[in-house]
């Protein structure tokens, strides 16, 4: 654990979370959510949880983003809020 690195990564994660729920274009929101997952993965590597980190990188940032993009491409891309 490195305190300053942890604080910077937490700030990035927080910004990505806020951006993912405020962007009206759903495809952009999903891509920002992928970036959120990768920052989360970095955060877990920094917390010495490497197994969790690569599970997150492959499952949540990989398959999750693919599922989301598939769902958005099958439905509407614009959101009202």
């Amino acid at each position: 654990m490195i305190l300053s690195f942890d604080l910077i990564l937490l700030l990035f994660v927080f910004i990505c979370a806020i951006a993912a729920i405020t962007i009206r274009d759903l495809l952009s929101a999903v891509v920002v959510l992928g970036a959120y997952s990768f920052f989360m993965c970095l955060l877990w590597t920094e917390m010495a949880a490497v197994d969790v980190a690569f599970t997150e990188a492959s499952v949540s940032a990989g398959i999750g983003t693919v599922l989301m993009i598939g769902a958005v491409s099958k439905t509407k891309r614009r959101s009202n809020d």
Partner: peptide, 14 residues
């Protein structure tokens, strides 16, 4: 608060 269903799912993920 968000009314879009995909936004709700993104919130659940977060």
């Amino acid at each position: 608060v968000k009314r879009n269903l995909v936004k709700k799912i993104i919130g659940m993920n977060i």
